[in-house]
């Protein structure tokens, strides 16, 4: 009932977002240092393209954009879950320090086990561990009946702590590893290849539907006082489960694309404006908006100062931070 109602309500939005996503996707495929015409893209799709076109499109650009889609969706859903479970409209895995925790553990792994591990599917697990550790710490420190600001404040502290530990290890790396780690930490997808897409994809494909299944609980959690309990919801257990899913999403995205902040903040906000607060429609719309945002940021990042690439995380932070401050004013 809820689901069909929500889908009916949101179908126009979903349709528009999907078409916009496809348009951006194709346009982004055609731009870059070596422009590829739309005709060439079509030829490559049906298997008639030249070897060079195939290399540029399939081996270089496609994985990068697939990664953008996956990361955008993952972080957006993670942010939606965090905002829903904490009833705090400003929660975001980046601001709460969850990304930093995941990043710290990935850098630690790279630091101690060097090379080889870079592409390994073990990284999402390490990142997941770090993300969960931070999420658990925040949950314990911020307590249950806590005013929204305190949660963010604890996040600021955790971010500072992880930042301090990160810098200690980063400075011990040799310059080339360092440059790589910095680019990665600021949120970059330019070295994407199919193996990193394949590493991330199962996480997103499993976790996003899992989050969607919790929509009903999330809707109930928005009710005030003891109403959720009265309606038969095991509040603490549900919140913990949702937090775990959010941490897993954020962690796996960080492992693949580094710390991209503010997507988990922006996407749910835009989505809520489009379809309202019902999580059955909010989660899918937020996922699409997140994908679209990262794709657009990537498009801007690779074309603005071409041939240089601006990491996508930086583009999003420059757009997202002022928006965040405006949100603070409006609250």
């Amino acid at each position: 009932m809820d689901i069909w109602h929500a889908v009916k309500q949101a179908r126009l939005t979903l349709f528009c977002l999907c078409s916009l996503l496809i348009l951006t996707f194709v346009y982004s495929l055609s731009t870059g240092i070596l422009p590829v015409s739309f005709g060439a893209i079509a030829r490559t799709v049906i298997g008639q393209g030249t070897e060079a076109e195939r290399l540029i499109l399939v081996d270089l650009r496609l994985p990068r954009m697939m990664l953008a889609l996956l990361i955008g969706a993952g972080l957006a859903v993670s942010g939606t879950l965090l905002q829903g479970m904490s009833r705090n409209a400003l929660a975001d895995p980046g601001i709460l320090g969850i990304n930093a925790g995941a990043g710290l553990f990935v850098v630690l792994t790279l630091f101690f086990f060097r090379s080889a591990t870079h592409q390994l599917p073990v990284l999402p697990f390490v990142a997941f561990f770090g993300a969960t550790l931070v999420a658990w710490t925040i949950y314990r420190l911020a307590g249950k009946a806590v005013q929204p600001g305190r949660l963010l404040l604890v996040g600021v502290g955790i971010n500072a702590l992880c930042g301090a530990l990160l810098i200690i290890f980063q400075l011990k790396m040799d310059p080339r590893d360092f440059q790589q780690a910095t680019v990665w930490l600021t949120g970059s997808i330019w070295q994407a290849d199919w193996s990193s897409v394949l590493t991330l994809a199962p996480w997103i494909i499993c976790l996003v539907p899992l989050a969607f299944l919790d929509s009903r609980s999330l809707n109930l959690l928005q009710l005030s006082g003891s109403l959720p309990q009265t309606l038969g919801l095991q509040v603490e257990r549900t919140r913990k489960r949702i937090l775990l899913i959010a941490a897993a999403l954020a962690g796996s995205c960080v492992a693949a694309g580094g710390g991209i902040s503010f997507i988990g903040l922006l996407a749910p906000h835009i989505a809520r404006r489009l379809v309202g607060p019902n999580h059955f429609s909010l989660i899918p719309v937020a996922a699409l908006v997140g994908s679209l945002l990262v794709l657009l940021a990537d498009l801007i990042g690779k074309n603005l100062l071409a041939p240089a690439d601006i990491p996508v995380g930086i583009v999003i932070a420059i757009l997202g931070a002022p928006y965040f401050i405006v949100l603070l004013f409006r609250k």
């Binding site: 990491p311 995380g313 931070a321």
Partner: peptide, 29 residues
Amino acid sequence: VTLTVAGAALSALFSALSTGITLFHQVAQ
């Protein structure tokens, strides 16, 4: 609390800008 959170966002903005600039000019380290 709100002001401190705003400060954190401002810091994020500044450090994103500086990382972008230094990565572009290869003086990040």
